[in-house]
């Protein structure tokens, strides 16, 4: 049936694409099913005779409408956008400065600082959320979105410093040295010479910081108690689940809508995510 020529032509497909298919389905199916569920009418959703894998009776936006009208969802969106935008900008700026010092400058304590950054980078947020809640309270930021702006940098800054330090080390030192001979001071050299050349690394740091703060869950769950100050992930998980009665349609609609900005950013900048991950400097 199969001549050697045909076999050779299909070989890459049979040994590569075919076996990778289960992995792709495994990775994507939960999202696909979330979208399908969010677009189904309740009548179809809870009818055991219907196939749950696709929509049989036509899509409906009813669940999305419910989210917009009867929940604080739009408010959570704004909260999350504000917190993520602010923490991302802050922690990339702070991380870039630290990374520059680590990669370029020599002074007493720089090695100790590098080790401290590395250790902090490895500390999981779950280790410190209880005492951090006390600190947030001492700062008078309990139940305020500022508590998140203050605490997210604890995991974003070490991450960005580490990522950008690796990137800055690949930039030849002579670049800014020439500029400084010509009269730039260090800050000018950093802003005018290093910043443009390091842009790919900085975009990478911005993307990862935004992704991490958008999806952060534990701190937001612990530090924020008012419903109208929640971020999306916590709002969807804790406020859209009402007792034993499940609103699966609107719950899935909430999860889809809350993930959407990240998906869009991801699709637009995918190569940066791959690069950041393969730099071996991202924890997952």
């Amino acid at each position: 049936m199969s001549s050697p020529g045909v076999l050779r032509r299909w070989r890459p497909f049979l040994t590569g694409h075919l076996p990778v298919l289960p992995f792709v389905v495994f990775a994507l199916f939960p999202f696909y099913h979330m979208v399908v569920t969010s677009l189904k009418s309740d009548a179809e959703l809870y009818n055991p005779l219907k196939v749950p894998l696709w929509i049989e009776e036509g899509p409906t936006l009813a669940h999305y409408g419910l989210l917009a009208q009867e929940t604080l969802f739009p408010r959570w969106y704004l909260n999350t956008l504000a917190v993520s935008g602010l923490t991302t900008a802050l922690s990339v700026a702070i991380g870039l400065l630290a990374a520059y010092a680590l990669a370029r400058l020599r002074f007493r304590g720089v090695i100790a600082f590098g080790v401290a950054i590395f250790i902090t980078y490895l500390v999981p947020p779950t280790l410190l959320f209880l005492p951090l809640a006390i600190v947030v309270n001492q700062l008078g930021l309990s139940d305020s979105l500022w508590s998140l702006v203050v605490t997210y940098p604890t995991f974003l800054v070490p991450f960005n410093s580490w990522l950008l330090m690796g990137y800055l080390r690949t930039i030849p030192k002579e670049l800014e040295e020439c500029a400084m001979i010509d009269g730039c001071n260090r800050v000018q050299a950093l802003l005018r010479i290093i910043l443009p050349v390091a842009m790919p690394g900085i975009i990478c740091a911005l993307l990862f910081s935004f992704t991490f703060s958008w999806g952060e869950f534990l701190y937001s769950l612990v530090f924020i108690s008012s419903a109208e100050r929640r971020t999306l992930a916590v709002g969807v998980v804790s406020d859209l689940i009402r007792g034993d009665v499940f609103y699966w349609g609107s719950l899935m609609a909430g999860a889809v809508l809350a993930s959407l900005p990240i998906v869009v950013v991801y699709v637009l900048f995918m190569d940066y995510y791959v690069k950041g991950l393969t730099a071996g400097s991202v924890k997952g």
């Binding site: 990775a27 939960p30 979330m34 999306l232 998980v237 995918m270 991950l277 997952g284």
Partner: peptide, 28 residues
């Protein structure tokens, strides 16, 4: 393919876990 495989890393974990919760739901 790489883009597809990387998706679970990108989506907020709490939200994608909600999707799994629904997959595990016993009746529906």
């Amino acid at each position: 393919i790489r883009g597809a495989v990387l998706m679970p890393f990108v989506i907020p974990t709490a939200l994608s876990t909600l999707g799994w919760w629904w997959l595990f739901q016993p009746t529906y």
